[in-house]
Nucleic acid binder design. Structure first.
Length: 260
DNA sequence: ATGACGGTGTGGCACCGA
């Protein structure tokens, strides 16, 4: 089975691109972030017609996440249990696939603006809340994936300018320690389980021709639990949608799982 | 040093993202 994550930066604008991408890439699960629309505006019918069920946690203007899946979803949880949040950033669901259960946690991690700001403090508290909840989720669901827009570069390979951007947002030691603490719960970056091209990124600024110059960051991840790690056969970043007219600034990441 | 681009909501610009 194939699972993908994509920050679409407004599903209202990007729906045609999502439908085109699904037609060309018929994945079993697609996790979306930054829907930027309320639940009543979610394009349920178009995605149903494309063959996908939708578990949605929308929000007007900002944030918003959804899990699209061919298999039915149950035990849907919205936001982090034990962490009060005004913003719609997390949705989790158990999928009953033909190859058994899969717990999917989809997150739009806090941006954080800059170290020393209130937004950065919120990011740190949010990451701690996520970790505390995920510890329980992993105990209850050994076959778990945590995917989404993490808004953190894992290490210096994940940025176009490691020296120039050192200790700036998405590159700070504090953010990276939080990501390492998540991994220490028993999660693995599917992308790094395989040899990958150098300078592989999942996001490029809209400005300064950043995509053409490949000045990007890898901040969108698929993390798999210990139990799933030996079941991952590939993980790739699909840069093609960044060449579309009116593209999202992020592109999809896809992992192949050989479930039993 | 700053802003650059794009989306949203409001209203002719501000805020936010990464």
């Amino acid at each position: 089975m194939k699972i993908a994550t994509w920050n679409v930066n407004s599903l209202a604008v990007r729906l045609p691109q999502v439908l085109d991408w699904l037609a060309a890439n018929p994945v079993d699960v697609l996790c979306l972030q930054e829907l930027k629309l309320s639940d009543d505006k979610f394009p349920l019918d178009a995605l149903t017609a494309a063959g996908y069920q939708s578990a949605v946690f929308g929000q007007k203007t900002y944030n918003g996440v959804a899990i699209l899946s061919r298999a039915p979803a149950r035990n849907i949880v919205r936001n982090i249990v034990g962490f009060t949040d005004e913003q719609s950033r997390v949705i989790a669901a158990t999928l009953d696939t033909p190859q058994g259960e899969l717990r999917v946690v989809n997150g739009y991690f806090v941006n954080g603006h800059a170290p020393g700001t209130d937004k950065f403090e919120y990011k740190m508290r949010w990451l701690e809340g996520l970790r505390n909840w995920l510890r329980d989720e992993l105990s209850a669901h050994p076959r778990l994936v945590l995917v989404g827009d993490f808004n953190i570069t894992c290490d210096d390979r994940d940025t176009y300018d490691a020296e120039g951007l050192r200790e700036t947002i998405h590159h700070t030691t504090e953010e990276r320690q939080h990501l390492q603490a998540l991994l220490a719960l028993g999660l693995h970056d599917a992308f790094r389980l395989f040899e990958q091209p150098e300078k592989s990124y999942s996001w490029w600024d809209y400005r300064e021709m950043a995509f053409r110059r490949n000045r990007g960051l890898r901040i969108d991840y698929i993390l798999v639990s210990d139990a799933l790690k030996p079941r991952v056969s590939a993980c790739v970043i699909d840069k093609l949608p960044r060449k579309n007219e009116r593209p999202s600034d992020h592109v999809p990441v896809v992992a192949h799982l050989n479930l039993l």
